[in-house]
Design a protein around this nucleic acid. Sequence first.
DNA 1: TACTGTATTTAGAAACATCTAAATATAATT
DNA 2: AATTATATTTAGATGTTTCTAAATACAGTA
Lengths: 224, 224
Amino acid sequence: MTVTKGVFNSDHQRDYLKHILHLQQVSSPVATTALAEAMGVAPSSVTDMLKKLSRKGYINYRPYHGITLTGEGEKEAIKAVRRHRIVERFLTDMLGFEWHEAHEEALAFEHNISDEVERRMYVACNKPTVCPHGYPIPSSVEDTIVSGVPLYSLEPGQIARVVSVEDDEPDLLRFMDSLGIKPGVRIKVDGKDPFKGPMQAEIDSKKRTIGWHLANQVYVDKVS
Amino acid sequence: MTVTKGVFNSDHQRDYLKHILHLQQVSSPVATTALAEAMGVAPSSVTDMLKKLSRKGYINYRPYHGITLTGEGEKEAIKAVRRHRIVERFLTDMLGFEWHEAHEEALAFEHNISDEVERRMYVACNKPTVCPHGYPIPSSVEDTIVSGVPLYSLEPGQIARVVSVEDDEPDLLRFMDSLGIKPGVRIKVDGKDPFKGPMQAEIDSKKRTIGWHLANQVYVDKVS
DNA sequence: TACTGTATTTAGAAACATCTAAATATAATT
DNA sequence: AATTATATTTAGATGTTTCTAAATACAGTA
Ligand SMILES: [Mn+2]
Ligand SMILES: [Mn+2]
Ligand SMILES: [Mn+2]
Ligand SMILES: [Mn+2]
């Protein structure tokens, strides 16, 4: 470990901030291991990075007790999320990518684009409010609040509308596609097996079986 | 200096290859200083990189005597140039950037985009054959040959058509724009002052004065 | 309160890209 | 052929991100 100093914000550091924002919405403060898992690096690598981010004022870091974003860190994180979702949108709307490709392509893509390119992509896509997976394109913290409940929390007889789906598993997204699940679609729950068993549901007037795992990655608004 | 080994081709290495290709079209083998100048880094940094590129088989490196691209290196360099020009095209055609912005934005942008994104940009721009500055979008070495002669080499009375302009000085590009100079435009040379003095020319039936420096950054095909 | 397992941090290293200052090789000039 | 100027490489360093293995802190159980 080498102690360093610096003021600039690299690509990787933005990625860390983005993941911290995501994780702290589930539980705060965020643990080193959770972040390491999310970033796909070793916990010791995270520790090193936390020192840098802390020194730069992006996070509040209490060794052994996890981290939270500072106001500045939150601002940067939201900018990163906004950019990611605009790029996803650009990839689907302007280049014709499928939504299951958009997320991963965007991850490779989103670094090193200027604010101006981002702005123009946003305008060229008609200032969209959500990404292809239904998540808001944020300007501030409030915009990052995700509405909706997991599909699996619904009971038989209830009707709901899909608002968003987890976008980080391409294969799962492709499978959702084959079931007709995407933001805006109406789902009627017919039944739900016990012990985390599959749901039976109607999507676009077709009867479908939806496993526990998948049904927890689809977020819906109850209609009735 | 640390001796290292590795097989992957980073962004920076691609940039080096791109600049080597460009420089060796003017004079070969390429000198360390020339490359350092082009890359905007110190000569010693270039030496380090040359060792890496040589070890990876992209260049033929004779210490103290300059370098040339290998077949493999040329292939990579051409891919980089192709990508750069497609991205420039995308920026002007799809995002509405001016040509003087396109080059610099593309430099920041072109890394980390997948082959598939590049392909789709290419298709979305209707498979263009040249970049916004008139340079070919290459598939092979032959495609990189630049036709045309410097405007300044013309004599009074001659008429020419602009094929390409140097794209690395934004301010100069903006000034060219204000004179109506761009690929495809017809220029009639009226006069040329001695001792590297300015030219007098007609562009779009307007009389213009064009300095030596500028006239050497505009490449034209003689029409008569 | 002491023990113990897991989470977290430190130690030491590699790989990358860059720098300045110093040493050396090559080329040009006397 | 000897000298000198310039180009180029080496030496030693910083800064970035990451790793494995070892040490330590914390929290939950005995
Ligand atoms: Mn995404
Ligand atoms: Mn998304
Ligand atoms: Mn260019
Ligand atoms: Mn160009």
